[in-house]
Amino acid sequence: MTRRSGARRIGILGGTFDPVHIGHLRGALEVTEMLALDELRLVPNARPPHRDTPHSSSQDRLAMVRLAVQDVPQLKVDARELERDRPSYTIDTLESLRAELAADDQLFLLMGWDAFCGLPGWHRWEELLEHCHILVLQRPDAGSEAPEALRDMLAARSVADPQALEGSCGQISFVWQAPLGVSATRIRQSLASGRSVRFLVPDAVLAYINAHGLYRASN
């Protein structure tokens, strides 16, 4: 991929991170290395419009994400959505980030296949590509087709090789990743029933969960 002199390359991965786990982190790190990103920012959602209210507080989720990436220089934490007193709309985050970047800096929004297929229900979703490229993290077993509302956009904007994305924004590509078989739901269920989640979350995150009694049956 051609990098213009001085242009930065920044990835964004949003989520409730309730809790952050190795699936989030491994996927983020693989993309960071594949595309030679300068940094990838994990952006915890405050009140995601399309999901249930998180089980743990914003403060706890932010603390866990910070602990998870403390020894990984390429991965950063961006708390701007937690600082808003309104739902976490991705378009607002992208506009805010763009205002801080140079015009030729590249911004990459990472999302899973299910989230991508749900884009037509997002707030101002058709404007997302005005601010970023979209990287869809697709598992080998994700065989369903994109909804009709996305097909024209895919036909016009798709680039087969994610390393061939050009310009600061406007294109879509797919990154194939092996599934790790881990989810935040499974982790919460295991903790609630007293089972170990070691090796599913970083040790520092597990220590925080235990110290604060998060996700236990009483929560």
Rank of each mutant, 00 (worst) to 15 (best):
M1T: 09
S5C: 01
G6K: 08
R9D: 00
I10H: 13
L13T: 06
G14S: 05
G15R: 01
P19F: 05
I22Y: 14
H24G: 10
A28W: 05
A28N: 11
T32D: 13
T32N: 11
L35A: 04
L35Q: 04
E39M: 14
L40H: 03
R41W: 14
V43N: 02
R47V: 06
T53A: 15
P54G: 03
S57P: 08
M64C: 11
V65H: 08
A68H: 00
V69E: 03
Q70K: 13
D71I: 00
P73H: 07
P73G: 02
K76N: 08
A79C: 02
E83D: 13
R86S: 12
P87Q: 09
Y89A: 09
D92Y: 07
L94K: 05
E95F: 01
S96T: 14
A103D: 15
L107G: 03
F108I: 04
F108H: 13
F116N: 06
W125S: 02
E127W: 06
E127D: 15
E127I: 03
L128T: 06
H131M: 08
C132T: 15
C132W: 07
H133K: 02
I134P: 01
I134F: 05
L135A: 10
L135D: 08
V136R: 06
R139M: 02
R139V: 01
P140Q: 06
P140I: 01
A142M: 07
S144Q: 15
E145G: 11
A146C: 13
L150A: 12
R151E: 14
M153S: 10
A155G: 13
A156Y: 04
A160C: 02
D161F: 04
A164P: 00
E166M: 09
E166T: 12
Q171G: 12
Q171H: 14
S173C: 09
G181V: 11
S183T: 10
A184N: 01
A184G: 09
T185E: 08
Q189H: 13
L191H: 05
A192D: 01
D203G: 01
D203S: 09
A204D: 07
A204G: 00
Y208K: 10
I209H: 05
R216D: 00
